[in-house]
Nucleic acid binder design. Structure first.
Length: 208
DNA sequence: GCATTAATTGGTC
DNA sequence: GACCAATTAATGC
């Protein structure tokens, strides 16, 4: 494994930088050392859909190697990040040489596919308010909360892209949630006050 | 400090 | 619930 680890290419990215572009030729697989990244799919009208978010230790671009020769998704940093890149050749060597790694990879794929299916279901079945709440809960689960504030700063637009709606809707839902004292917002910092209530609101409507 | 961008709010379809 | 417009707040230079 040491041999393979030597063949990586580490680089850093400033906030908002797109390092993986839709339609660009494959450059292997990325590993996120530090920072946060959003995975994007751009629609025909220039609308972005955030497919998933990645934090430290996540693998990015795993859908894009081996099969097709171009990426089907894009990725951009949402804060200053450090990434490293493994080329296709290196990846294939690793997969063919280390069965344990390949097995872990397979479990990882299965897991991600499951998450993806759940997300599709959510977008299709939940209303906007529920999707925004779900996004907040996801952020809470993924990045955690310190001093009662989420450890991630996303613009309204980015939250909208993730929830599959528009930034105006996100703003409106934020204000009503704030009025209901379910969340609190100070600048870009978001605080989930009544996590239990937020969760129950989603579950009630999901299990109908 | 000024200019650009993001957030908020109201309105229309 | 999306799109547009106007105002205000925040941010970059």
């Amino acid at each position: 494994m040491q041999d393979f680890a030597a063949q990586k290419n580490t680089f850093s990215c400033k906030k908002g930088q797109q390092f993986m572009i839709e339609g660009a030729p494959l450059q292997g697989l990325y590993f996120l050392y530090e920072g946060k990244v959003k995975i994007i799919k751009t629609g025909i009208y220039g609308k972005e859909q955030i497919v998933r978010l990645s934090s430290e230790g996540d693998t990015i671009g795993f859908r894009g190697f081996g099969t097709r020769n171009r990426y089907l998704i894009g990725a951009a940093t949402i804060e200053d990040s450090i990434l490293c890149n493994f080329s296709n050749d290196v990846m294939q060597d690793i997969l063919k040489t280390i069965p344990e790694f390949t097995y872990d990879m397979m479990l990882f794929y299965a897991e991600e596919l499951n998450k993806s299916e759940n997300k599709v279901k959510k977008i299709a079945q939940m209303n906007v308010r529920e999707r925004v709440i779900d996004t907040l809960l996801h952020l809470h689960k993924k990045f955690g909360q310190t001093n009662h504030y989420l450890n991630v700063y996303l613009s309204r637009k980015e939250i909208a892209d993730f929830a599959g709606t528009t930034d105006e809707q996100v703003t409106r839902i934020f204000s009503s949630l704030k009025k209901e004292s379910l969340i609190n917002i100070v600048g870009k910092k978001i605080s989930l006050i009544e996590i239990g209530k937020l969760q129950s609101e989603i579950i009630e409507h999901t299990q109908l």
